[in-house]
């Protein structure tokens, strides 16, 4: 299957008056058509900045320092803001975390949806309005005819998120980036939104990048996962491999710190001790090493390369090196050489 998106060695930093904060420190991944990729990580891991970097919405004082983002063969990092606008809301759409504040309160919902439609097509007002009504129906807003004239504050949080999804889907995007779309919502609403996204993806054949810190959500809808920490990718894998045999201490730690009602046993939650690194003075070596129970001397000094666990699983951890001591659960394998240009997962 063709690769719809390729991110290669992306580096994004914020140049503040305190210094350079390296939010994204050399990450690479790819997406094939129809993938639902989950990016999971704590606050500060760089996941949101990654998504913003893809569509060029990283604001001052931040900028994409190096690397490339190739969408359907086109290099996005070289495009001007105006050229990127043709993609945004059109082929690549994005929805954000807080629906309560993400819609302009002084214009009607219809006005705003129609605006997005007409920005990327030749439809006149009537046609755009018809499409807008279609979309509202599609995302499950009851009584679209009256609601299209309503203002955002007349909708609940879940409804607003649906409106935002309608906006994002209005021009049939090929790639939808969802940055924690359900974090600000109730669990029951969350389930509805996830259902909606799953259906839409099946119907429209879009690819999705789903950013979250919630492993449960990942398990629900993603087929591939990237685990980020400290601006770097710790592990990337297909969903089954990640959950059955995680190959990075951080991933394992994440799994252990989440309560699992299914097991039925009384087990203690094991939090990961310590706190995320300060990206103003980024640590040399593996960013997770201060908190890792298997840390070795080399981990503090050098960041590990990606080790190929399988065709669909890669982990950035020295424990996979043949020269490293054997630790239960971590397989030994070859690392991906630095010169490798093709992104394998």
């Amino acid at each position: 299957m063709a690769k719809i998106l390729e991110v290669k060695h992306l580096v994004t930093s914020f140049f503040t008056h305190l210094g350079e904060v390296q939010a994204v420190r050399d990450i690479s991944f790819s997406l094939e058509k129809g993938d639902i990729l989950g990016i999971v990580g704590e606050s500060g891991s760089g996941k949101s900045v990654t998504s913003l970097s893809i569509i060029g919405l990283v604001d001052d004082p931040g900028e994409v320092v190096s690397g490339s983002v190739i969408f359907e063969g086109k290099e996005l990092t070289k495009l001007s803001d105006r050229e990127l606008n043709k993609y945004r809301g059109n082929d690549i759409s994005m929805i954000f975390q807080d629906p309560m504040t993400s819609i302009n309160p002084v214009y009607t919902v219809g006005n705003q949806i129609i605006e997005v439609i007409r920005a990327h097509s030749d439809m006149n007002h009537a046609e755009a309005k018809a499409r807008a009504l279609e979309l509202l129906d599609l995302v499950g807003i009851p009584e679209p005819l009256t609601r299209i004239k309503s203002f955002p504050h007349e909708f609940s949080g879940g409804m607003r998120q649906r409106v935002l999804i309608a906006m994002a889907l209005s021009n049939n995007p090929k790639l939808l980036i969802a940055d924690e779309p359900t974090t600000a919502l109730d669990v029951t609403i969350q389930a509805q939104i996830l259902d909606l996204m799953r259906n839409l993806q099946a119907k429209m054949g879009a690819s999705i990048i789903f950013i979250t810190h919630d492993l449960g959500v990942i398990a629900e809808i993603c087929n591939k996962v990237i685990v980020m920490y400290g601006g770097k990718i710790m592990e990337k894998a297909d969903i089954m491999s990640l959950y059955e045999k995680p190959q990075h201490p951080y991933t394992i730690g994440l799994m252990q710190s989440v309560p699992k009602p299914e097991t039925g046993q009384k087990k203690r939650l094991v939090p990961i001790k310590g706190s995320p690194p300060d990206l103003l003075k980024p640590p040399t070596g593996c960013p997770f090493s201060p908190r890792c129970e298997h840390a070795m001397e080399v981990c503090l000094k050098e960041a590990a390369p990606l080790y190929k666990i399988s065709k669909t699983q890669f982990a950035s951890c020295w424990l996979h090196d043949k020269d490293a001591p054997v630790v239960k659960g971590f397989v030994k394998c070859e690392s991906v050489p630095d010169e490798e240009t093709e992104v394998l997962l």
Binding site: R82, R88, D98, E115, A119
Partner: peptide, 21 residues
């Protein structure tokens, strides 16, 4: 505000974003 970000993410022109939103 977040809705400014939404407007830009939806690909609206800078002009529109500023003067309308």
């Amino acid at each position: 505000q977040d809705y400014m970000r939404t407007a830009r993410a939806n690909g609206l022109s800078k002009f529109k974003v500023l003067y309308k939103h």
